[in-house]
Amino acid sequence: MSIFISPMMAVIGTRGKNDIINAVPVPESELKKRNEELEKELKESKEREEQMRRQLKITWERLRVAEDAEERLCSQLGELEAESVYHARDYHGRIVSLMDQLSNAQSLLHKALPSSSTSS
């Protein structure tokens, strides 16, 4: 599309090989009005773009905070897992020790009971 402006009128149309096709004369006041509309749309578009940039920055910051929190949680989870393994091993060792004590006590009782029952 080409725009040709005269002092009082303008012509808007498409250009071919040195020919103006579908040329429509447009008064200068309409061109100014259209220009103002386009400038207003451009300003609104820039404002929307700036708002989107601010929202993107806020979202980016929230993502960074969430990633930091995730790293801390993973670290804490790892520490808790290591501590639970330590406690499980400790409890297992205590259970084995108690089972050995119980086995020894049962063995002693078993040895003591037959001798006391035979003497009676």
Rank of each mutant, 00 (worst) to 15 (best):
N18H: 09
D19I: 15
S29K: 01
R34G: 07
N18A: 10
P27T: 09
N35V: 14
E39T: 10
L31W: 08
N18S: 07
E37C: 04
K43S: 06
S45M: 07
E49G: 11
K46Y: 04
P27H: 01
Q51K: 08
L42N: 08
K40S: 08
E30Y: 03
P25H: 06
L31G: 01
A23R: 02
P27K: 01
N22L: 12
V24Y: 10
N35G: 10
K32L: 15
K32H: 11
K43L: 03
K33I: 15
S45F: 04
R34N: 10
K33V: 15
E28F: 12
K33R: 04
N18W: 13
D19M: 10
S29F: 06
L38E: 13
N18I: 14
E44L: 04
N35F: 15
R53Y: 04
E30K: 00
K43D: 07
E49A: 13
N18T: 13
E30H: 04
R53S: 11
I21P: 08
E30W: 05
E28G: 00
Q51D: 03
K46W: 03
N35M: 07
S45P: 00
Q51R: 03
L31F: 03
K32S: 14
L38C: 10
D19L: 12
L38R: 05
P27E: 09
L31C: 01
M52T: 12
E44K: 01
K43V: 09
R34S: 09
E50S: 05
K43T: 06
R53D: 03
L31R: 00
E28D: 14
E41Q: 12
E36T: 04
P27Y: 08
L31K: 00
Q51A: 13
